[in-house]
Amino acid sequence: MEILLQQIINGLVQGSVYALVALGYTMVYGILGLINFAHGEVVMVGAMLALSALTALLGMGVPPVPALLFSVMVAMAGCMVLGYGIERIAYRPLRHASRLAPLITAIGVSIVLQNLAMMIWGREYHSFPQLISNDTHNFGGAIINDIQIVIFILALAIMAGLMVVVHRTRLGCAMRAVAENQHAAQLMGVDINRVISITFMLGSALAAIAGLMVSANYGLAHYYMGFLLGLKAFTAAVLGGIGNLRGAMLGGLLLGLIESLGAGYIGDLTGGFMGSNYQDVFAFFVLIAVLVFRPSGLLGERLAERA
């Protein structure tokens, strides 16, 4: 029973991070109908930038909390510039090209970012400094630490904030209009390019925070961390219904739970044949299962069939 509760807690924390990244995929998809393959790498760059800023600031003797806040700002700013750049360089010129072209540039951007990161930060794992107190709390037999609590609450708050932006502001209205029908939105005086750029920047800012959360949770950051994370977050977005913001949040939390419970129990289920080293394959099977049985996802209403 304690194991179950523990896995649920771990799953929800991890899932809230997936949800933040999934939002980036789903926002871009909703507006452009395009999978931004490079999004996972933006998460990685966010984590690396935050870590570098943090290490530098702590080295100068800045107290932990201001240092952390400032590093978050640096990471977010860096990722927003990056997201803007990716859209301008790799996607905008190809908006009217064949379907294949933006997919290929996207994977190209992803490879470039990964290798640049490797050149800058090296191949080794970087450990994340311990900043906030990491006391553990006993919660019905399961253990939860302060970092996990902060991650979970912060992620929920950010998601709530995003919903407010999308549904209550002029910008959000423009975003929804562009997602609905680009041409009609343009005729109504919406500056499409501006809205698309802002969407990419918003998604990238979320990715930066998610990157920081992942590395704080595991205490590690690595140039290759964005790849699998991106794949899983994409799965979360598809699970919830790609293009649907609430779906991305739900999908993220659900995927986190599936993965954590799966990894916790796969040993028992397969009689010890497979262990938790197969944790990373769950997302993939979830993805396949969703595509087979409900391609529009849990909350997605329209089945995207725009060939």
Partner: peptide
């Protein structure tokens, strides 16, 4: 489904 899904599923398969 759309071609994008194939791209990401094959990407995942390569890793799996």
């Amino acid at each position: 489904l759309r071609g994008d899904y194939l791209a990401i599923v094959t990407l995942g398969f390569g890793e799996i």
